[in-house]
Design a protein around this nucleic acid. Structure first.
Lengths: 226, 226
DNA sequence: TAGATTGTTAATCGATTAACAATC
DNA sequence: TAGATTGTTAATCGATTAACAATC
């Protein structure tokens, strides 16, 4: 029996992509079941935590067998909304934008990239991954004629807020933003800020731990308040 | 007085990039101080949590003024290790790899991108962002002659593990992996998995909430155990 | 001074773990 | 059957919040 999925806490939601990734991999193996202990080894979460998490989604476990890999995978897809078709557009066809135009992750997550926009006349008209780059001046027109669920924002920092404002004004309710600068939107619009360099930060923090432990920090730093 | 920085919990560490991003922005304004209440509005964290977090790093706050923006910014840079110079290389010059070669985030975080490698003969020799793409067969040779602190892994999924193994064998201790597949490394090697499509997942989950709340889920799904 | 805001403590809240009965 | 492993409860652990004295 499935519990009220609406009540699944954020922290569990944040582990879903990790389960998804590993189950996808497991699905390709010839195994049918996976135990919480095996998932623990793969994910780094404790087996106890995994059993607790999974119990939110229903009862896929069979005592002494483990979890049905395929069922679990399907259910996580449903909770994450991957089984629901969504249209997404890309604003900004610079280096990162182009890489995202070639991203293979859309389909399996239920997204279809339907249009790419840019401001640069040199890019407009070029075709990337079968999509012709449209002029950003056509944005409002396009959105009035096509139902679009979300937009990817990969414009330069300076243009990010203005472009987001245009998207919101044109009715977009979800933005995946790669702008390094935080953007402001009304409360009914979802923004997912993808700090692309966050991984670089985390790596740096971890590489830094041994040095910080030797506490050369205070010496380096002469900005303390008295 | 600064506490033992080594003991800063992961959860606080994970908020550092957010503080960093907002302080960087604030630094450009003409303000000298920012209050925990203002930071709360910007970050979405509670002012109480922010004061608690910041108290770990030292005493930058002045009662009735707030926090010295520049000092706080500097200290967070130190904790994240941005003031320490690191060399990084890029393996895989496909669409995403090229976008990362043009990424402007390295310098301010103390990284310098020093080499780009690829397997594809059509790419080898091309210059992207002033770096000539080298053959992956030169990897070991390059690493034996150059001190490198970290590697960015943007090779296709199928090559990810093997390439990671080569990097580890050649002495690399930190990998920023964009492979969609989890990679295995020895315990003394740091891996930061950047699930590029995680933002897409999060967006999807949030867009899905209203529908899930109407609980069409159980009907959709006929994979339950009996 | 009066108002503002920190730094910190204690209280609360929530998440994780340990343990084990149930059972395949 | 005996061994394995879930699902769940209670105990623990850790993180967040509320509150307020200190003080600029």
């Amino acid at each position: 029996m499935t519990k009220d999925l609406y009540s699944i806490p954020d922290i569990i939601m944040s582990r879903l992509p990790v389960y998804y990734q590993h189950l996808k991999k497991l699905k390709e193996s010839n195994k049918t079941y996976v135990s919480s202990e095996e998932l623990a080894k793969l994910t780094g979460f404790s087996s106890s935590l995994i059993r607790k998490d999974l119990s939110y989604f229903g009862t896929f476990g069979r005592k002494s067998y483990g979890y049905d890999i395929f069922c679990l995978f399907q259910q996580i897809r449903i909770i994450m909304g991957f089984n629901y078709n969504k249209k997404i557009i890309l604003i900004g066809a610079g280096h990162l934008g182009q890489a995202l135009a070639y991203n293979k992750g859309y389909i399996e997550r239920g997204y279809k990239l339907t249009a790419v926009f840019d401001k640069n006349p040199k890019l407009i008209g070029l075709v990337i991954n079968d999509l012709e780059i449209k002029s950003i001046s056509d944005l409002e027109n396009y959105l009035s004629e096509n139902k679009v669920d979300a937009a990817i924002l990969t414009v330069p920092e300076a243009a990010a807020q203005k472009t987001a404002d245009r998207l919101v004004a044109a009715g977009i309710k979800a933005i995946w933003s790669f702008a390094e600068v935080p953007i402001k939107v009304p409360a009914d619009v979802l923004v997912e800020e993808q700090l692309i360099n966050e991984g670089l930060c985390k790596l740096s923090v971890k590489m830094n731990q041994p040095r910080i432990n030797k506490s050369e920090v205070e010496e380096d730093f002469d900005c303390e308040q008295k």
